[in-house]
Nucleic acid binder design. Structure first.
Lengths: 211, 211
DNA sequence: CAATTCATGTATTGATCACTACGGTGACTG
DNA sequence: CAGTCACCGTAGTGATCAATACATGAATTG
């Protein structure tokens, strides 16, 4: 039923199938471990289709990264707006919890990102560059959120501490993914609570320090 | 066999050159990104030499992992013995500081380990299996150290908390490497102090919880 | 229905992959 | 000094890599 199943304008569906398959493969095997043959084998589509939808392997992986990022954003917290939680510690824990759940529920983006981030070749793949960009965007969003959460009147001081905290925040989420992945023995809720408390404590320390 | 190996000691040197080159390449490009051609190009030795010293690529990378681990252990703290530091917090900070310096001074092992750890193929490479083993060994050593550091008489309770702490400890070091790597804005000493304080606080919490 | 566009099917390109066959060479041994 | 062995040099093997040429068919357009 392949011939009858394939109708005109089903290109978009094929494109998504390719992205989905590439994401699954690249998140498990990394950039160099991902081959077009694996993608065609997984999707049932021929190489010519892959190259009709994407210019080359580099662009395929870059678009796969963006695709997984967009999907991750759907479950991740939107750092743009604050929820109405009075207690700062509770608000931090709330954000941490949602972010960690987004990572655990939809780990492929984070996983692929870590792999691309660790890569270091003389000829940087577009996928890695794109990852660093979206990570930068996320960091900026988290920083903006911290600037709102942090008390105090001195804007410059708040910005400085917020930037440092956002960086720390992201790194902590990296560790959280690696920890959750190393499996057994991790209670995610407990871990999130612990980490949120640590970040909160650090925020207070840095704020005081900057004063 | 061994005696005859001594007479031509050029072989051992070549073997080390190959391991060194492979480590540098694999730590930057990962398992699949590492090719024999890159190694021969880097060392100037022909492929036949590589395959005389190592059975295949898989074993080359596995031995490279072990080689980098041994070298890392030279700078890393030996968790077997305790230094005579009275204050537990200070001792924790001391260990953390030495461990973090080992990672930063000799990052290739940690970097290669993270890449291998993230890998997930149906056919697991020997290098990855070996990495998980040495990581397990390290965790056990850290756990044994924690069991000594932790107060309290109940052995079973200490063991449980120590195991959890060792796991947490390792993950925190992963995060530390990623953070230190993402560069600019990280003051390592400050970070170590912060993390040590967090781990110490967590140790106390878990101890109390277990009581 | 004719022309055009979209997407796939088929078949293949040259490059690079892991790996090896095999002979040479120099250091050591008996 | 003849023979052995460790290690390297040369020159490949077939497999797989990313990528492409070109034809086909199905839907859309005019």
């Amino acid at each position: 039923m392949r011939k009858t199943a394939r109708r005109h304008q089903q290109g978009e569906e094929s494109r998504l199938r390719i992205l989905e398959a590439t994401l699954a493969i690249a998140a498990e095997r990394g950039y160099d471990g991902t081959s077009i043959a694996l993608v065609t084998e997984s999707t049932g589509l021929p190489p010519s289709s892959v190259y009709w939808h994407f210019r080359n392997k580099d662009e395929l992986l870059a678009e796969t990264l963006e695709y997984s990022y967009r999907r991750w954003r759907e479950t991740a917290p939107t750092w743009q707006e604050r929820v109405g939680i009075a207690d700062p510690a509770a608000e931090i824990r709330d954000r941490m919890e949602r972010a960690s759940r987004a990572i655990v529920d939809n780990p492929e983006f984070w996983r692929l990102g870590l792999m691309l981030g660790l890569l270091n070749r003389q000829q940087e793949p577009a996928a890695r560059r794109r990852y660093l960009e979206v990570r930068g965007e996320t960091r900026a969003a988290i920083q903006a959120w911290w600037e709102q959460v942090l008390p105090g009147g001195d804007d410059e001081r708040r910005r400085l501490v917020a930037e440092r905290l956002a960086r720390f925040h992201l790194t902590v989420m990296d560790g959280l993914y690696l920890g959750a992945r190393s499996g057994r023995g991790w209670n995610l809720d407990r871990l999130v609570e612990l980490i949120a408390a640590g970040v909160h404590a650090q925020a207070l320390t840095w704020l005081e320090e900057a004063a």
